[in-house]
Amino acid sequence: MELFTLQCLCKTLQEGGLAPAAQALGIRQEALEQLMINLETELKVPLFQREQGKLLLNSTGRRYSDRVRQALCMLEDAALQAASARDDLHGTVRLGLLATPPELPALLSYFSNAFPRIRLQFEEYSPAEEYDLLLAADPLPALPAPYTNLALVQEEMVVVISKQHAWATRRRCQLRELRNQPIAMPDPGHSTLSGYLRGLFAKNPPHIAFWAPSILQMMIFVRNGACTVLPLALAECICKEDPSLRLVHFGKKPPERTYRILRREDVPLPAIAHRFLDYALQFYRAQP
C-alpha cells in the first residue's frame, strides 16, 4: 500500500470528489481513479459508489479516509519532531493577533510538544510593534509594512439568538432574513469582524443594527431580543457559557470567514518562525 495512494484518498475526501482532488494533486483524473480502484482491490472492501458516471466515496470509504487522515497527521507530526531534534531550533517567535483562528489552542499544544524549545509569544497587534508573523482574518486591515498572506482555514458563520427569540425552534435561516431582524454588530472602528460583517451585509443590509464595542455588550442586546452573527467556534463557546442562548445555522451555503497567517516581505523570516508557519499550514490542511 503506497503512501501516495493514501494521500490521494484523503485528498479525495477533502475536495469532495475525484475531479477536484486530481486537479489539486496535479494528476489526471483517470490515473487517480485507477489508484482508488487498486486500493479497493487491495483492501477487498468497496470504498466508492458510482453515481451518474462518477466515483463517490461511500460511508465505508469516508470512515476509512478519516482514519487514514489521522494516521497521516501522526506521521507528519513524528517527522516534525524528528526534525526538531535534528535542528535543535530554539528561541521566541513573536506573533501579532488581529484575529483568533479556530482550533488555535490545539495547534499550540501540538507545536509545543513537537518543538519544546521554541517559545510562542502572542500579543495584541499594534502598528508600532514588529512581529515575526501575524494572525488575521478577512477583511485584512491596512498594515504599515508589506506582508504576504496565506490562507489557514475557513470558519462557518452562524446566528446567535436568545431562546425567547421568534426563531428559537429553527435550525436554519437565510441571510436575507436578517434584514427584518434587530442585529447586534461589533464596533466598526475596532474590529476586523465588523469589517467582515459590513461586507457580508453590503448587498442586504440589516434594517436595524445595534453597534456594540464588545462581545459582552453584543450578548446583552441578544438576550433582549436582537441577534448577532459570529464565527462558529466563538458562538459555540458563548452558547455553552450561557444556556439562555442558542445558535442557528445558515442555509446550504453558509457565509464563511477566512483566517490567514501573514509574514513580512521586506525582512528575512527567522528559521523558528518559518517552522511555526509551516507547521500551522500543515495543521489546518489536515483538519476535516
Results as ranks from 00 to 15, higher is better:
10 C>E: 01
142 A>L: 07
91 G>M: 07
223 R>I: 03
48 F>G: 00
140 L>F: 12
184 A>D: 06
208 I>A: 02
155 E>S: 00
185 M>W: 06
113 N>H: 13
202 A>C: 04
59 S>E: 14
272 I>A: 03
201 F>I: 06
69 R>I: 04
183 I>T: 14
133 L>E: 05
245 L>S: 04
168 A>T: 10
44 K>R: 13
56 L>G: 07
19 A>W: 01
268 P>C: 09
103 E>L: 14
193 L>Q: 12
82 A>H: 11
104 L>C: 12
212 A>H: 10
155 E>V: 00
29 Q>K: 14
166 A>K: 09
252 K>A: 08
244 S>M: 01
45 V>R: 10
238 I>Y: 10
130 E>V: 12
18 L>E: 01
233 A>Y: 00
174 Q>W: 13
250 F>N: 04
123 E>Y: 13
227 C>I: 11
114 A>I: 15
151 A>T: 01
62 R>I: 14
85 A>R: 15
146 P>D: 12
70 Q>A: 13
187 D>T: 02
204 N>M: 11
31 A>H: 10
130 E>T: 14
201 F>D: 05
257 R>F: 05
40 E>F: 02
223 R>C: 08
117 R>G: 00
99 A>D: 15
50 R>S: 04
143 L>Q: 06
253 K>P: 05
105 P>C: 12
78 A>C: 08
